[in-house]
Simulated assay, not measured.
Amino acid sequence: MPPPTTIAKSRRVWDRQAARYDRGMRYVEARLLAGGREWVASRATGRVLEVAVGTGLTLRHYPADIQLTGIELAPAMLDIARRRATALGRPADLREGDAHALSFPDESFDTVTCVLSLCAIADSATALTEMRRVLRPGGRLLLLDHVASTSRALHLLQWLVERVTLPLQGERFTQRTLPLVRATGFDIIEQERLKAGVVQRIHARKAPSG
């Protein structure tokens, strides 16, 4: 569990970025991540928790018949997500929360999603453990993120970028997410690597008890 000072710094960083976040993501998503949010949302069923919902860019893609809850650390990001949900007519329980300590009982959700956010959560392993805890047995974990490239040249570039992004905003570019998901006790159902391995989509399952 990261110290409170780390969590507070992350909240300040993303609060400052909230107003320009959507504009900055527009080009990145069009060139690098097209179809990613749709891929995640199309696999969500039942009671769904989106961890680090951000400004709510995935909201429009979820099926109409799910029951959606979202948590977000940064209040300014959350305000935008709430306005977006209202504009879309999308019923959702959007609340402030920390991915390291989810304020939900065990086995509360059928699906947990995390879109382009695990890379910026200070302790990914703790967050994944919490996601597993709140999933029912057999529940789905759906992730989209940028990870360490399979290209050595790109991996080096990511490492260099990380020298700036890690101290400034806690964002990692060389994380290897799939081993973390497996180590947390999930079974992998689907996984894709795109764009020289920089983009990864993961569909995993919490093994049924017994």
Rank of each mutant, 00 (worst) to 15 (best):
P105H: 00
L157T: 14
L142W: 12
P179K: 07
L128C: 07
Q169F: 05
T129F: 03
D110Q: 02
M25T: 14
L141Q: 12
G70N: 03
A8V: 05
A44D: 14
T6G: 00
T6R: 05
L166H: 15
E162F: 06
H203A: 13
P4Y: 03
T174C: 14
L135F: 08
E107H: 06
I188K: 13
R26D: 13
G97V: 00
A87I: 00
L73A: 00
L143T: 06
L141K: 14
F173A: 08
D123R: 02
L143Q: 11
L116M: 07
Q191M: 07
G70K: 02
A92H: 03
S103L: 02
D187C: 06
V164A: 13
A127M: 10
L118S: 06
L168C: 08
Q200W: 10
Q17W: 10
L102Y: 01
R205L: 11
R83S: 04
V13R: 08
R26K: 15
T113H: 05
Q17H: 11
R20A: 09
V134E: 10
R37E: 15
T5Q: 15
D123P: 02
R47D: 15
T129K: 09
I189C: 09
Y21N: 08
T165P: 07
A74N: 01
R133C: 12
L73N: 01
T58L: 11
V199W: 13
V161R: 13
R31I: 06
Y62W: 12
L32Y: 13
T58G: 13
S42K: 14
P75M: 03
T129N: 12
W14V: 00
R132C: 07
M1A: 07
R31Y: 15
D65V: 01
L141G: 14
L116T: 08
L194G: 06
G170I: 07
L88C: 02
A44F: 11
G89Y: 03
F173I: 05
V40T: 08
F186T: 05
L154C: 09
G89P: 00
A19Y: 08
L157P: 05
K9M: 10
A19V: 09
D110T: 00
I188P: 13
H146T: 15
W14N: 04
R83G: 07
P137F: 12
S108Q: 01
G138A: 13
